[in-house]
């Protein structure tokens, strides 16, 4: 731990803050994931969402600048990884892929390499777009990043040279077990925590607190935001790629408005200021969402059967977001990192 503290710029490294969320993630994944095949799929999806929420936490949480554009990087990551891993035979014969560029149809790499490439592509595109977008603040930044999401969606939806267009890309290899997505989520967790306690994380939080005072200390706001945007774009690319290997397919609609709204809700409900908030938000929304889904499907939960109309899940999540914003705008965790509860009584 002392060695980590000695790395330039890194301070406040706390093993509890890192190990707490990591252990909870492992226990949650194993307990729920191994109970049934359908819940294994739910946990795999939760892990993808968690990596995406971490990506949002790095940038949105630390800088306070709203971004609707991270879905574009996830979309890009999903298409890159999906197209790189889908079998050549399927890409050359599927009805939805007749216009696909031959150079893309003929390429196939292994799953791990494709995940790495997806993250790199997400990071590079975020780095390039960040040059322009990171000059903006507040509403302008929100609208511009939303436009980026719109551009990415329309590009992939209407272009059949670089993917299946509005159709689904079939044959994307699925994760065979829980361990790979869990390992990737843990890796993302460690990376984001180290970034948050580094000088980059600290500087970003300073720009969120007061973007007029920050330059007076020699902080180049645009530069530090660009770095964070590129890093979070890489994580979003990884999250999108993971999602495609859980679903076994890539469909552009999966990474558009619903995905963006859901992952931002997770971040806000949990608390955007910490990785602990990202985890709590993801687990809460996924768990409640799963229960509501079962109710929508008319399934009994612990012997109790409550029928909910279709769409109740989305309404509930939206309502929870509104309540969270009104009641506790800094989220359930109040934006704080994990800490063991202090049961010691105060001495008089």
């Amino acid at each position: 731990m002392k060695k980590i503290k000695n790395i330039s710029g890194i301070t406040h490294f706390s093993l509890t803050e890192l190990l707490g969320p990591a252990l909870i993630l492992i226990v949650f994944s194993c307990l729920i994931g191994f109970s049934s095949a359908s819940l294994m799929l739910t946990v795999q999806l939760a892990l993808c969402y968690f990596v995406m929420v971490l990506a949002l936490q790095v940038f949105v949480g630390n800088s306070g600048v709203l971004s609707f554009g991270h879905g574009a990087f996830a979309m890009l990551g999903a298409f890159v990884s999906g197209l790189l891993t889908a079998p050549v035979r399927i890409k050359n014969n599927a009805l939805s892929m007749t216009d696909l560029l031959q150079s893309i149809a003929d390429i196939q790499v292994n799953l791990y390499l494709s995940l790495l490439i997806a993250a790199i592509v997400g990071g590079v595109v975020a780095g390039i777009t960040g040059v322009f977008l990171m000059r903006l603040n507040g509403l302008a930044a929100g609208i511009a990043t939303f436009a980026l999401l719109g551009v990415a969606y329309n590009f992939f939806f209407n272009n059949t040279k670089f993917g299946p267009g509005s159709q689904a890309l079939p044959g994307v290899p699925k994760f065979q077990n829980l361990f790979i997505p869990l390992l990737l989520a843990l890796l993302a967790l460690v990376l984001v925590y180290l970034l948050n306690v580094s000088s980059i994380g600290r500087t970003l939080r300073a720009t969120r607190e007061d973007n007029l005072a920050a330059p007076a200390l020699g902080i180049n706001i645009i530069r530090v935001r660009r770095i964070a945007f590129a890093l979070s774009g890489a994580l979003a690319g990884l999250a999108g790629a993971m999602y495609s290997h859980v679903a076994g397919t890539v469909q552009v609609q999966d990474y558009y408005l619903g995905f963006t709204f859901l992952t931002l809700s997770m971040l806000v409900i949990g608390g955007s200021g910490s990785i602990w908030g990202a985890l709590v938000g993801t687990l809460l929304v996924i768990s409640v969402g799963q229960v509501l889904l079962m109710m929508e499907q008319g399934k009994a939960i612990f012997g109790l059967s409550i029928d909910l109309p279709n769409g109740a899940r989305a309404i509930f999540i939206a309502a929870t977001l509104v309540v969270a914003l009104l009641w506790r705008s800094s989220g359930v965790t109040n934006g704080k990192e994990f800490a063991f509860p202090n049961f010691k009584k105060k001495s008089n």
């Binding site: 406040h12 300073a206 607190e209």
Partner: peptide
């Protein structure tokens, strides 16, 4: 113009 949400050390 101190950063009120950050610690003194930060």
């Amino acid at each position: 113009q101190i950063f009120g949400g950050l610690s003194v050390t930060e």
